[in-house]
Design a protein around this nucleic acid. Structure first.
Lengths: 172, 172
DNA sequence: CAGTTTATGTCAGACATGTTGACATTCCAA
DNA sequence: TTGGAATGTCAACATGTCTGACATAAACTG
């Protein structure tokens, strides 16, 4: 599978974009390494409290959409309700999340951050935003625009609309 | 923490970049959703064989740098050697990876993909490259450039040099 | 309106993958 | 040549995912 600058199957359009296998593979690796950096700061802070990324994700989205139901959170996170439930149970026990029976539909549970929950969210988010801010600043506005465009295109097409709507709909 | 379009702490430079907390948070969520899309295809294919992302990562980097040692792979993946060892043991048992005693230093093990390993790597990588290619194509060359710049900046500064070198050094 | 089905959420057990600790082998330097 | 350092392996435990079984509330249906 040794190959030169452009593989035999590369089309003209892809050449203009430098979409050789090699370029694509570099994009793949960059995604891997960048995501590790992206999660590094919160990971450290969470570990001190005995939490993991799953807790962070729950806290993040509950903060973004206070009062959302377990089912709505499941739809965002795409994990099983059993998996989410364990995380939520801990957060509720630790008084970071409040779970209130739904007013209209009493099967539902509306989720809110407590004051302590908001506090932790702030700490986690501040670290992550700091890194994102530095990355954005160093890369410049054009790059930020490109970053967004590529990442949007990387989302599953069936989910893209939902995700982009949810990005806007936060903190309604 | 209710706040308007620009928080009180937003500086002028950040406004020019739209680096409000809200914009940063949207970047954070985009990163989360995009990474899930990024891993979706390989995840499905791996599951059929009873493997996980850990196997994929090992296969990917062994393919990129045939003959690398366990220690070198550890340095890339940043997991414990015990964790990596379990994954490698399975891959060697399943005849996807060959582990040869080092010629100079017999403590080391040099890792290679077998023909079957290369076959699986091709399948996994083809799916991931397809998604990356579509994303890059739809976003356009400028966007791809920006994507790279931002992602590079998101990597831990201490690791950035090493990572960028390793991107280039692959398939030497 | 009684009985059944559907929706939402919880609890229990299994597997994958991360961790730390103990150990065997090999290399190297005093 | 011997003791420490480097490399890799094996074992036990923690976390977070999954599937399955269940409880409760709402919605449907005859």
């Amino acid at each position: 599978m040794a190959q030169g600058r452009h593989s035999a199957t590369t089309t003209r359009g892809e050449q203009l974009l430098f979409l050789t296998d090699e370029q694509l593979r570099q994009g793949i690796e960059l995604m891997f390494f960048a995501y590790r950096g992206f999660t590094a700061d919160p990971d450290r802070m969470l570990e001190e409290r005995g939490y993991g990324r799953a807790h962070h994700r729950a806290i993040h989205f509950i903060n973004r959409r206070p009062g959302l139901t377990v089912n709505e959170l499941l739809d965002i996170l795409r994990v099983t309700k059993q998996s989410l439930n364990r995380v939520l149970r801990q957060l509720v026990e630790d008084r970071l999340v409040a779970s209130r029976v739904g007013r209209e539909d009493r099967r539902q549970r509306n989720l809110y951050l407590t004051e302590a929950g908001r506090q932790l969210e702030q700490e986690l988010s501040a670290a992550q935003r700091r890194r994102m801010r530095v990355a954005f600043s160093n890369a410049g506005p054009e790059a930020v625009h490109g970053f967004r465009q590529v990442l949007e295109q990387m989302i599953d097409p069936e989910l893209r609309e939902q995700v982009l709507r949810s990005l806007e709909a936060a903190r309604p």
